[in-house]
Design a protein around this nucleic acid. Structure first.
Ligand SMILES: [Mn+2]
Ligand SMILES: [Mn+2]
Ligand SMILES: [Mn+2]
Ligand SMILES: [Mn+2]
Lengths: 220, 220
DNA sequence: CTTAAAAATTAGGCAAGACTAATAAATTAT
DNA sequence: ATAATTTATTAGTCTTGCCTAATTTTTAAG
C-alpha cells in the first residue's frame, strides 16, 4: 500500500465530496472549480489517479472513485474532522479558525494516528461544523440535517452544521452569536425574497436572507 | 513575512542543529549528509536561502543562519518537540514512534499553534527524549547533559536524553527497559574496549558497549 | 612548493504539478 | 440537423527540488 502525495490526497478528497449523492457526474471542470485550479491540470492528475487505480474515468461519464480511492478519501475526511474537534475542544480555537489548520493536519501520515486521536477525543460523532466523523471501518454516522430555509414558521430547530464553510459566513454567525447547538425559532417567512425572521438566544427577532437560510443546517 | 516551503524549513532546521556549538563551519557536504541528499542539491538550496536572507554564505567559511533564519528554525524545533510531548503523553505513542510523526507535524503552519499547544500540554520544559523545548521568545532551557560514557564507576545518574535517535537504538533501549528518568549506576569501565557494566531497575548488572554509552545522555 | 585527495560548483536532466494557448469533442440551442 | 457554445484534451512552458557527471577550487600531504 504505497502512500499518496499531498496533491493526490486533495484530489481524492474533492472527488469524494463532489460525489455526495452519487448522482451527478464528476467532471474535470467541477474538480478544477473545487480546487481552484485549471481543468488542464485536473486532466493530468486524473491520468495519474487512473494509473494508480484510485479512480475510474470514462469520458462523458465522469470520474468515479474506486473502492481503494474512496477508502483513502474517507480516511482523510476522518482525520480532518477529528483534528477539527481537537483544535476546538483541546486548543480552544474558534469555529472559523480550525478548518484551514485541519486542511494541513489531515495529511499527516501514521497508521494509528486517526484511531488514537479518536480515542483521546472520546469518540466524537460529529465535527464542530456538525458533519459526521467517519468511523475507523469507514462507516458514516447518518446526519439528518435540514436547511433552515425549509423550516416552517412557528417551528423551532437546533443548529447542527453549516453548508458554506467560508470564513465570511462563519464570522457572520459568530457576530450574530449563532453556533452549533443554538436553538432557532422561525417566526416568519417573507415570500417576496424568501428571507426569514427568526429568534434565538437573547435575540427576539432578526431577519436573515434566503442565502443565509440555505446555508445553515439544522435539526428539527 | 512570507512562508517557507517544507524543504526550506527542513534545511533551516538541519543547519540550526549542525550549528550546535557555533564553532565548526557548516559545509554543503555536512548538510547533504544530514539530509541524505546530494551536495549539488544543497548548493542550489543555499542560493535560494541566501536570496531570501535566511542564511549567509561565504565560501570556505560555510553557512550561517541569519537572525530571521534562526528564528524560523527555532520555531520548527519548538513545534517538533511540543508535538512529541503531545504524541507521547496524550495519544500514548511510545518513545521511538513519535519522532517521525513530529517530523511531519512540525511543518503545520498557524501563528498561534505552538503557543496553544504549549499551554494545553502544561508548558513542558523537555521533550520525551530529554531535549529542551524552546520558549515562545526563542529562549532555550539549559540542559546539563553528560554522556553516560563520562560517568565514573561507582557514580549514579539519571537518563535525560538520547543522542542517537535512530529507531534501532530506541528499540534497544525499550528492550532493556531504559527510558527517560531511569536511574543508572555505573559499576565498572573496561579499559580494553571502553565498554561499561551498569545496573538499573531490576537489572543487577549488564554490559553495554562504548557506542551505547556515547549515545545515552544522563544527568548526574 | 607541488601533487594528490576531498569538497564545491556548474551544467544538463528529470519528475511532479501547475499554467496558457490551441485544438478537438461533446452539449445545447436554433 | 446544424451551428453555437461549453468542455475536455493536448502541446508546450515553468518552477521546485532533486540527481549525475563533469569541472574547478580548496585543503592536505609529501
Ligand atoms: Mn473542515
Ligand atoms: Mn488538504
Ligand atoms: Mn524528534
Ligand atoms: Mn521536517
Amino acid at each position: 500500500m504505497q502512500t499518496q502525495t499531498l496533491s493526490e490526497e486533495n484530489y481524492l478528497k474533492v472527488i469524494y465530496h463532489l460525489d455526495k449523492d452519487g448522482l451527478k457526474k464528476i467532471t474535470p471542470t467541477a474538480i478544477s472549480e473545487a480546487l481552484n485550479n485549471n481543468p488542464a491540470s485536473v486532466v493530468d492528475m486524473i491520468k495519474k489517479l487512473v494509473d494508480k487505480k484510485l479512480v475510474q474515468y470514462e469520458k462523458s461519464k465522469g470520474v468515479k472513485l474506486t473502492d481503494k480511492g474512496r477508502n483513502i478519501a474517507i480516511l482523510i475526511v476522518r482525520k480532518h474532522r477529528l483534528w477539527e474537534v481537537f483544535l476546538l475542544e483541546k486548543l480552544g480555537y474558534e469555529w472559523d479558525e480550525i478548518h484551514d489548520i485541519a486542511e494541513q493536519l489531515e495529511h499527516i501520515q501514521n497508521s494509528e494516528l486517526a484511531d488514537r486521536l479518536e480515542r483521546f477525543l472520546g469518540f466524537p460523532q460529529y465535527d464542530p461544523h456538525g458533519d459526521p466523523i467517519p468511523k475507523a471501518n469507514g462507516e458514516q454516522a447518518i446526519s439528518y440535517k435540514t436547511l433552515l430555509a425549509e423550516i416552517a414558521p412557528g417551528k423551532s430547530c437546533k443548529v447542527v452544521a453549516v453548508k458554506d464553510t467560508s470564513s465570511s459566513f462563519l464570522q457572520y454567525l459568530k457576530k450574530l452569536d449563532i453556533g452549533i447547538g443554538t436553538k432557532i425559532t422561525v417566526l416568519d417567512k417573507i415570500p417576496f425574497d424568501n428571507s426569514m425572521s427568526i429568534a434565538f438566544g437573547k435575540t427576539e427577532s432578526t431577519t436573515v436572507s434566503k442565502i443565509f437560510a440555505e446555508n445553515l443546517l439544522v435539526h428539527e
